[in-house]
């Protein structure tokens, strides 16, 4: 193991300052952070309301139909969150070309051999833990990036199927762009079925993703959790990037 290289920030250690071998890097720019938390919130809403649309509660029966609208609200929140998510995703998409290196679309799509090698390394080091050390990543590690890619596809699928279902209850032009989806998938029933089934991809993602964020922070101590709030990560310079 090589001797830690001491960064510039560590030249004059002060009480409240960083330990000597940490470097502070601005990773998540504002649009990315905004996207992240709006996404997190709206996806959570979509999952909860979507699930309830599929499995209405056996409750509220005291009231008459004209006194309440809870199922209607459930659907309204679903659609509202859906449109928020679509909007913020468009912003993120723009930022994938405009933002810093960590925001770039290149991170997400595993096109290079290096990315696949890195995914394999992560599987051995972090998932199976057969190997002890891997490389440190400033932005996403390749596997996390890959999981966001899957999430992105799933979200794209939900948007297309969701808007196709929605188009049939609205006369808005935008949604009618998705009319082709229904015949392609063999009818509304199938569209709805798959739209519902893909809900579970999000649930799985959330479980794994939140765990991994904690895990990374715990194992690597890079401040991953606060990074998505502040934008800054901390990097120890002892291993090669």
């Amino acid at each position: 193991m090589s001797t830690p290289v001491i960064g510039a920030a560590a030249a004059k250690p002060v009480a409240n300052e960083l330990p000597a071998d940490y470097k502070r890097i601005y990773v998540w720019e504002f649009p990315v952070r905004l996207f992240h938390w709006v996404t997190a919130l709206s996806i959570a809403m979509l999952c909860v309301t979507g699930f309830l649309i599929g499995h209405p509660l056996h409750a509220f029966y005291a009231a008459e139909a004209y006194q309440q609208y809870w199922f209607g609200w459930m659907r309204f929140v679903h659609f509202a969150s859906a449109f928020v998510l679509v909007a913020v995703s468009l912003v993120r998409l723009y930022w994938a070309f405009r933002g810093n290196q960590y925001a770039s679309w290149r991170n997400f799509i595993p096109l290079t051999g290096a990315q696949w090698k890195s995914i394999w390394e992560l599987i051995t080091v972090e998932v199976l833990q057969i190997k002890k050390y891997g490389r440190y990543h400033v932005g996403h590690n390749a596997m996390a990036a890959f999981s966001y890619f899957i999430l992105f596809l799933a979200f794209l699928f939900q948007t297309v199927t969701g808007l196709a279902l929605y188009s049939n209850m609205s006369d808005a032009r935008l949604t009618h762009v998705f009319n082709w989806v229904v015949p392609l998938m063999g009818g509304d029933a199938n569209v709805r079925f798959w739209h519902h089934a893909v809900l579970w991809i999000f649930v799985l993602f959330i479980i794994v993703h939140v765990y991994l964020v904690f895990y990374d922070d715990y194992v690597e101590g890079g401040g991953e959790m606060s990074a998505m709030v502040s934008g800054w990560k901390f990097k120890r310079d002892k291993r090669e990037d």
Partner: peptide
Amino acid sequence: ADTIGATVGLVTLAGVAAHAVLTNVRKKSV
């Protein structure tokens, strides 16, 4: 889709928990 989704979800949770334990054992030194 829900029975299957919920099953896979539970398996994932269990996997995550197992992984957390594994981490504390295998990665202790790191």
